[in-house]
Amino acid sequence: MSVGFLLIHARPQRAWSAILSWFLFAAGLAAYLWVAQARHRENPEDRVTPTLAQMATGMYNAVMQPAEEDEAAPPAANFYDRLSHSMLWRDTRATSRRFLLSLALLIPAVLLGLHMGLFPYVGVFFLRFVLFFDKIVALSLLPILFIAFGIDELSKIMLIVIGVTPTIILDSFNLTRGVPPEQIVKAFTLGAGDFDVAYRVVLKQVAPRVLNSIRLNLKAVMLFLFAGEMIASTDGLAYRIALLRRHMGMDVIIPYVLWVALLLFLVDFAMRTVNRKLHPWFHEA
């Protein structure tokens, strides 16, 4: 090893890279198991740090047992029937629906940002307000949201809208502004009209960057969604976590949290793949 291993010019070998990149996972797991075991030795009924076996049982029940609110599936039901009545499936479905609906609501936000960036009157009309709104801590407005939108789906989705859309609007505004003016002039000289420029030149160019910006905000969307579900809900992943927390059902909460992380990762991965497929010309700088 001619170059010290902590230097910038170090070149880790493949095997070492693999080992090092998984080390913290292994260490985290080991530390957890050690603490869990210690706590269980002291108190066999400890619920704060369930063992792997307890989590497996908890998760098995979450996947295979009908949710408490649901009608029990007929005992002879096959695997898929039981799955469709299960706690995990119901919660995932409810949360996903809200999540995707909120993502769909980001599309008008992107278009608004685009128009603000291109059309000066739209820009002056909205920009100051959106800048102000971006700094509002949406969670503190909850009572108003409840009164304005009720406590059903609408108020949860509005929470996300208020929390995340200003960021997305400003992001697409800035990205639109970042398109070189030459491009816009060029499009006009080729005979394009205002809307051709907006949708066929600028939007197509900023689309991959906007998608990336939405990817970065996925966690914020999830955070607001969770806050909403924890405060008032009848189903959803965060509803279950809030409920189980009340009697320390960590054996289900921990797998649920990991499941949410996996789902978010998959959404992010899917968006990245779609982005690459749709925009082969785009290279992240």
Binding site: P180, E182, Q183, V185, K186, A187, F188, T189, L190, G191, V201, K204, Q205, A207, H279, W281, F282
Partner: peptide
């Protein structure tokens, strides 16, 4: 009052649409 089809334009940079 604004650029249109009668006058073609070739700038130094950014003259092509990168997405096409």
């Amino acid at each position: 009052h604004q650029p249109d089809r009668t006058r073609g334009y070739v700038p130094q940079k950014y003259s092509l649409f990168p997405d096409k």
